[in-house]
Design a protein around this nucleic acid. Structure first.
Length: 113
DNA sequence: ATGCTGACGTCGC
DNA sequence: CGCGACGCCAGCA
């Protein structure tokens, strides 16, 4: 039987919630951290359900590998994602995170890889 | 029960 | 170099 705490979503949510302030990560990175290198789609999909998470999930800090706010369309307000990022000091240009490389946060780091 | 879709990523042509 | 197709897992029609 599948425990809610053992769900694939939960793992994504937990990892996503570990993203520090003013920092961003990619779906692929999370998927990789979970052992599903090519399952990046599942990560984003889990993000869509992040609202169902028992805790706050900064889904706005999760972007694709290029740093583009692909999921902004799924937000209640498309501009909310960009807004929140800018609010955290993250430069967003044309729906893309500026210097995404520098702001990129590696989940593996928290996993003590 | 089967098939399509989905907040992506990588490889191939 | 640019575009296309496949793979991943799970939910939903």
């Amino acid at each position: 039987m599948k425990s809610p705490n053992d769900d694939f979503f939960m793992q994504v949510w937990k990892l996503a919630s570990l993203i520090p302030y003013g920092r961003v990560t990619s779906y692929g990175a999370i998927a990789n951290a979970l052992g599903k290198t090519n399952a990046s789609r599942m990560v984003g999909w889990a993000m869509s359900k992040s609202s169902l998470a028992p805790f706050n999930v900064p889904a706005h800090r999760v972007v694709n590998r290029i740093g583009v706010l692909t999921g902004r369309n799924s937000f209640e307000e498309p501009f909310l994602m960009e807004k929140l990022l800018k609010q955290e000091g993250v430069e967003v240009k044309n729906n893309k995170v500026v210097k995404f490389e520098k702001l990129f946060w590696n989940p593996m780091q928290e996993l003590d890889f």
